[in-house]
């Protein structure tokens, strides 16, 4: 008897579900094309169509930390910034790693913010990355790409925020790469001394310990991407000069050659391991990549 009731129940549902075709009316979802300004069109042509990247430059509080006081970008600064970002980050990677490589790994959302992002202690957040999908860049209203008419000192000062922001892009992109395929575990053993108190060290201190920047001291992952981003945002000559200038002094202020050579050697070992990793895993020659980026930076700085 129970089986008959169950069968009747099931058939009822079947026929009730299939008994008529309803007119659902017009769609409630707005699929109309939004009105695009020149900046929107430029972004579509240069980021969205080729790389499937959404660039959000208009104010959207939901994309940002609501506890922070921030301002949107100045409209006139959006295209110059994105254009330079293409030249210094996207195009060199696409050229050296292939456009498919860049299409696969470029973060799919880039959020631009005009103001500094202050922490409670007065320090400033330069950029934030979320799981390889989204990168938020701050300070846009303070980056000026027009260096014409500047003297050497002014040009160097103007280049500082430019290098800082693009170093941030290379840094965050480095995270995406090593989170996709990890770098060799031996890298983590090259230097000791990782510490959460990295802010108590200067870059100079860190270099004497075999780390390229103070922030590299935080953990091996940050060490890896700091090495990569510092390497890629300066020419090979500048890079070599930084390493060669590492000197450690003994208690009598004489150069401790052995200790100095050890620190230089540790950074060179990291450089080699990163070069091998990038070549073997991603088929990218970082020396060629570095040269391509340096050419763009050189043009910009001069």
């Amino acid at each position: 008897m129970k089986k008959i009731i169950f069968l009747f129940f099931s058939m009822s549902i079947l026929f009730a579900s299939c008994d008529k075709e309803e007119d659902l009316g017009k769609s409630l979802i707005d699929t109309s094309t939004p009105e695009l300004n020149d900046v929107d069109e430029w972004i579509r042509e240069n980021y969205t169509y080729p790389y499937n990247v959404e660039v959000k430059y208009k104010w959207d509080n939901s994309e940002l930390d609501n506890t922070k006081i921030l301002t949107p970008t100045t409209l006139e600064r959006v295209i110059p910034f994105l254009d330079k970002m293409k030249g210094i980050w996207v195009d060199p990677y696409a050229s050296n790693g292939g456009s498919d490589f860049m299409k696969a790994f470029i973060p799919k959302q880039i959020v631009l913010v005009g103001s500094h992002n202050y922490n409670d202690n007065g320090s400033i957040v330069l950029g934030q990355a979320e799981g390889g999908r989204k990168i938020t860049i701050f300070d846009l209203n303070y980056i000026n790409f027009d260096l014409s008419g500047m003297n050497d000192w002014e040009r160097r000062k103007a280049m500082e925020p430019i290098l800082r922001v693009f170093k941030t892009m290379h840094h965050e992109f480095g995270h995406i790469l090593h989170q996709t395929i990890a770098y060799p575990v031996e890298y983590k053993k090259l230097t000791i001394g990782y510490t959460s108190n990295w802010m108590n060290f200067s870059d100079s201190d860190a270099r004497k310990m075999g780390f390229i920047t103070a922030y590299s001291l935080l953990n091996p992952d940050e060490d890896f991407v700091e090495m990569l981003s510092e390497f890629l945002t300066r020419s090979n000559e500048e890079w070599n000069e930084i390493i060669d200038k590492i000197e450690i002094y003994d208690d009598s202020w004489n150069t401790d050659e052995a200790a100095s050579e050890k620190a230089r050697g540790q950074i060179r070992q990291k450089e080699k391991m990163i070069a091998d990793y990038m070549l073997q895993i991603w088929k990218i020659d970082i020396y060629k990549l570095q040269a391509d980026i340096a050419e763009v930076l050189d043009e910009l700085g001069n």
Binding site: L70, P72, T73, T74, L75, Y118, D120
Partner: peptide, 26 residues
């Protein structure tokens, strides 16, 4: 107010109390 303008001065952390701005909204 989507992009930076004179009105954004009301939330600019560089203006007013450092890091906090004037306290306005966008």
């Amino acid at each position: 107010f989507d992009t930076y303008s004179k009105f954004s001065k009301m939330t600019d952390p560089e203006i007013g109390i450092p890091g906090q701005g004037f306290g306005g909204e966008l």
